[in-house]
Simulated scan of single mutants.
Amino acid sequence: MTHQRWPWAIPGLCCAAVAAGVAAWVANWVFFLGFGPLFLVPVLLPDGRPPSRRWRPVLAALVVW
């Protein structure tokens, strides 16, 4: 029956699992914030504006996403 209590037998194991989950979540968002704006580059090149008014919903979707 000791295998049912093993996570509590090692002090701090539960907290380490939660901390690892939080660290993974933060790493995912940091990656997106760093590379997310790169998706806007093809829409805004070469003059910094969308090519036409029809591209505005695409631009808004990229900003919201």
Rank of each mutant, 00 (worst) to 15 (best):
M1K: 10
M1T: 15
T2G: 12
T2E: 13
H3T: 13
H3L: 06
H3C: 04
H3N: 09
Q4G: 14
R5M: 15
R5Y: 09
W6L: 02
P7W: 08
P7D: 09
P7G: 00
W8L: 07
A9T: 11
A9L: 15
A9H: 06
A9Y: 07
I10E: 08
I10L: 08
P11M: 01
G12R: 01
L13V: 06
C14T: 00
C15H: 01
A17L: 11
A17F: 10
A17G: 07
A19T: 01
A19S: 12
A19C: 01
A20N: 04
A20F: 13
V22I: 08
V22S: 02
V22A: 03
A24D: 12
A24Y: 10
W25Y: 15
W25E: 11
V26S: 00
V26P: 00
V26I: 11
A27N: 02
A27C: 03
A27F: 13
N28W: 08
N28Q: 11
W29V: 03
W29M: 01
F32K: 06
F32S: 06
L33A: 00
F35W: 11
G36Q: 10
P37Y: 07
P37I: 11
L38D: 12
L40T: 13
P42D: 13
P42G: 01
L44P: 11
L45A: 14
P46T: 15
P46M: 12
G48M: 05
R49T: 15
R49C: 13
R49K: 15
P51W: 09
R53F: 01
R54I: 14
R56I: 05
R56H: 07
V58F: 03
L59M: 13
A60C: 13
A60F: 14
A60G: 04
A61C: 09
A61R: 06
V63D: 00
V64T: 09
